[in-house]
Design a protein around this nucleic acid. Structure first.
Lengths: 197, 197
DNA sequence: GAACTACGTGTACAATCGTACAGGTTCAGG
DNA sequence: CCTGAACCTGTACGATTGTACACGTAGTTC
């Protein structure tokens, strides 16, 4: 059994490297060769542990999503439970769904949203992102109730749509400050949905 | 001068073919070879009329956006000016911004939104999409005022974000009916923004 | 210690891509 | 007519990609 354990560890190292490439250089950059170079293993190893590029990208996606989800969960769990202003609520919404750093970095936004498109293209990736999205929705509701909103007044789907849509549009209108623009828009949405009380 | 006119016509035919490929097979499929095949001209012609792939894609994008914009403008101009229900207003919003056919076709949605991501990646494409987006915003406001909404109550940016965000999320959650889900969400948004009266 | 199997990897192949460019053709202007 | 420039195209090069696969190594089992 030590045999298989060693193999699994090697594979895990490859997945980790793939996730790093995905995060740093984007989806298209995740290739057999780039991952092998990142993990400092020979090219042949990637074809030994993964049946094809799709599986490689899928594993990278899984690893990346898990890490992101775990990070966020701890952040939200540590969030103080107190009443917050609409502005503060809006900032938290965007922070949870996308993150401030990403919202402020054009190329990071591109790398983030290209995954949505890719999930639409390749059905095999959909469950991964869908599961992650569900977790985010729960986190979002949690954040809002921790901020003093009535649970039944929260329209998570609308808030998610506003955030993603605003940031996506920021990619094409070249807005100077996507973060600010998105938070403002989300705040307006919150006036009616997500925190009416 | 007949010389240059003939060349321009040839180039225009290439651009038209490129726009067809873009619409049918997506951004990645717009290559020198595919466009040449679509236009039924030799490969060499594409390098003669376009300095590189970026210019080819840009021209295709321009042509596609112009056609789409023109089509929509006539549709909106023909729209009867009468008071409409929130549901009908929501349907019009989604129809103007994305279109019912596209919203119902997963792969068409992918081809549509991958352009947003590409515009974020390549700055040269941003002005094209931004100009088109501005025109759509005007059309959207027009549609809503034609439906009985108060102009000052319309938050175009929010409605755009909701629509795009909802459809983008539909790509990953595998919703059975993205159109319906999006219209419903937009309708909720309209309750407060875009048509409060 | 022999045999078997999981592990590991170097190399190569076929496909696709953007792009360059030599060379040919056509046509307007002198 | 002739000449030069615009128009046109077939071909090929270099790079990159996913993938296959023969071949070697090491560790487990009997």
């Amino acid at each position: 059994m030590a045999r298989q354990a060693r193999g699994a560890a090697r594979r895990a190292a490859l997945v980790e490297a793939a996730a790093r490439v995905l995060d740093r250089d984007g989806l298209a950059a995740v290739s057999h060769r780039s991952v092998a170079a990142e993990a400092q293993v020979p090219l042949g190893s990637t074809t030994y542990y993964f049946s094809g590029r799709e599986e490689l990208v899928g594993a990278a996606l899984d690893a990346w999503l898990s890490a992101e989800e775990q990070r966020l969960t701890t952040v939200v769990a540590a969030l103080a439970r107190r009443r917050r202003s609409p502005r503060a609520r809006a900032e938290l919404v965007v922070e949870v769904l996308v993150g401030r750093d990403r919202a402020a970095d054009q190329s990071a936004l591109v790398r983030y949203y290209e995954r949505f498109v890719e999930a639409g293209r390749l059905r095999a990736h959909r469950p991964r992102l869908a599961r992650s999205r569900t977790a985010y929705d729960a986190l979002l509701a949690d954040v809002l109730t921790r901020s003093g909103a009535a649970p039944e007044g929260i329209d998570v789907r609308l808030l998610t749509a506003v955030t993603d849509g605003s940031l996506l549009n920021a990619l094409i209108d070249g807005a100077p400050d996507p973060w600010e623009q998105t938070v403002t828009t989300v705040e307006r949405a919150l006036r009616c949905h997500g925190a009416p009380n």
